[in-house]
Design a protein around this nucleic acid. Structure first.
Ligand code: SF4
Ligand code: SF4
Lengths: 145, 145
DNA sequence: CATATTTAAGAGTATTTTATCTTATTTAAA
DNA sequence: TTTAAATAAGATAAAATACTCTTAAATATG
């Protein structure tokens, strides 16, 4: 079940690295992140530009520049990042993608699928980047191979 | 949350039409299905060839030929169709797609995501095409616009 | 047998996604 | 002020996906 595009996967991993290993009062370079996670520097840069444009990251150019969270990690929810990376309609799309889809006369899997989507949406809404970063720092979870 | 490719979506809708409106002891032409659901005839044909090769459908050429379920609808589970259309590893792939992924040292969303995947997999395993076809015939559910 | 109907097979095209590359701009520090 | 470090922007390339088209094979029926 491929729930995220490459942009979504890389973007999440990259921002989680940023969250997990924050440099006090300063910016972290994209180069460091992409090197650590073995991701394409240019691709991560492009993804991060989008997150910056959407107000999730801030960036600073020049030496000792880089990126940083625009808000404290406990105020950025997983759903914010996922929607920024995959589109605001991420939770609107549905299993068999009927035209004019809705609850009025739904497809035969609607009931179950809607329930799943709601659960996932709720979890993503409740989960902050701070929570995930903490998990990574605890050493019991990882972001790369 | 795009859980299925176009092949998966079209394939599911098409096979569900076949299930919902079965022609007694006979084949239904792909043309009828694609016309009714407003899908590309050629594309549906290609998708159905795969389902036939995988033993989910049987086909018959020539006048009054077409496709039919290879087994009774209550013996084909939703998971069979989804795996045939999206790949046997459908439920192995995971949220942020880590290399060498597993439960040993998982990513920070693993616990929740694994639970969701398991729920979905269970539901798909328990849901037969017969059940879904019945829903459609009840007129409360639809397959197209 | 001749013809029409239907799926099989696969080549071919278009579009989207993924990834790379080049150039410009900003900024710190030597 | 020069240089190096860093992101911004967007062009380009490669790969995957989505879709279309053509030809072949099978089969029923007149
Ligand atoms: S009816 Fe429900 S599950 Fe089906 S495609 Fe629409 S929103 Fe999705
Ligand atoms: S650790 Fe779990 S959730 Fe994360 S990528 Fe691997 S299988 Fe998926």
């Amino acid at each position: 079940m491929k729930a995220l595009s490459q942009v979504g996967k890389y973007g999440l991993r990259a921002i989680l690295y940023l969250v997990a290993y924050p440099s006090e009062n300063s910016y972290m370079s994209i180069r460091q992140i992409s090197d650590e996670l073995n991701l394409s520097f240019h691709f991560v840069t492009k993804i991060f530009r989008e997150l910056t444009a959407k107000g999730i990251l801030i960036s600073y150019r020049g030496p000792s520049g880089g990126v940083a969270l625009a808000r404290p990690a406990d105020q950025i929810m997983l759903i914010d990042v996922v929607k920024a990376l995959e589109g605001e309609d991420y939770f609107d799309k549905c299993l068999i993608g009927l035209p004019n889809c809705g609850t009025a006369k739904p497809c035969p899997v609607h009931e179950f699928w809607k329930e799943m989507k709601t659960k996932i949406q709720q979890n993503f809404t409740e989960t902050s980047l701070a929570t995930l970063g903490e998990k990574i720092r605890s050493q019991e979870f990882r972001l790369d191979d």
